[in-house]
């Protein structure tokens, strides 16, 4: 409790939950790019995940908790910070704050919206149920995730939504990663500028990695 009563404590909660979420984002990407090796890659991956059984649910619950905390504190801190600087300057010049940094709440909310859509789409499979992997099995009897993804992303609109959401994730992380390192007190004078760059680069890599999938499908490089 004391942790969340202290403003540094709250930021540390943000960092640790952020770290959990970004770890998930990384692992998720590693899983997703198995799509590039065709149906065998991703469908095997999906089967493996399902075989984890209760463990999968443990991970899901942890992620849900991390997400919940991250969102609650993110919104709370944003509201608090706004009241701390209620009156605006007539002229306001930022010297080092970035677009990404200033819009964390908006990219965050966008990601939350997208996440709802994404879960309904690929996890709950209530959007475009005709491609549902739980209903359509591949030749080896595994859920056909590959076809579900490829068919979904062949709709340009869907791809655009996904790429846009990934841009939001990228922006969010381009500030969030370095911010996390700083809040956890892992920086010194030398590492700080490096971390700012590394954070941004890592965010870019994640964005490109994720965006590559719909891009590959729309451009017909994948799924033919």
């Amino acid at each position: 409790m004391t942790l969340i009563k202290n403003m540094v404590g709250r930021k540390i909660v943000m960092s640790i939950t952020g770290l959990a979420l970004v770890s998930f984002v990384c692992i998720h990407l590693l899983g997703n790019i198995s799509l590039f090796s065709g149906p065998d890659g991703i469908n095997a991956y999906a089967k493996m995940l399902h075989s984890l059984g209760p463990f999968l649910w443990v991970v899901r619950l942890i992620m849900a908790a991390a997400l919940g905390l991250h969102m609650v504190f993110g919104i709370l801190l944003t509201l608090e910070n706004r009241t701390s600087r209620a009156q605006k300057y007539a002229v306001n010049k930022h010297l080092s704050a970035t677009v990404a940094g200033k819009n964390m709440i908006w990219t965050g909310l966008l990601i939350a919206l997208y996440l709802g859509y994404h879960l309904l789409h690929f996890t709950g499979q209530m959007i475009m149920p005709e491609f549902s992997s739980s209903r359509n099995l591949d030749a080896l009897g595994r859920p056909d995730v590959f076809s579900m993804v490829v068919h979904s992303f062949q709709h340009t609109v869907v791809s655009v939504v996904y790429v846009t959401a990934m841009a939001a994730v990228g922006l969010h992380l381009s500030h969030g990663l370095q911010s996390m390192v700083q809040t956890l007190g892992l920086n010194n004078e030398r590492t700080l500028p490096v971390m700012v760059k590394v954070g941004a680069a890592a965010a870019l890599v994640l964005f490109l990695g994720y965006a590559a999938i719909p891009a590959g499908i729309v451009s017909r490089l994948v799924g033919r």
Binding site: G9, S84, T98, H175, L186
Partner: peptide, 30 residues
Amino acid sequence: GSCSNHYECQAVCPKGIKVSFIAKLNREYL
């Protein structure tokens, strides 16, 4: 308010106080 790591403070500090001290504070807090 709390720190969002924008580092505006460091940019305007007339004495050149570094935000690496904020990392130090966070470390001390932990």
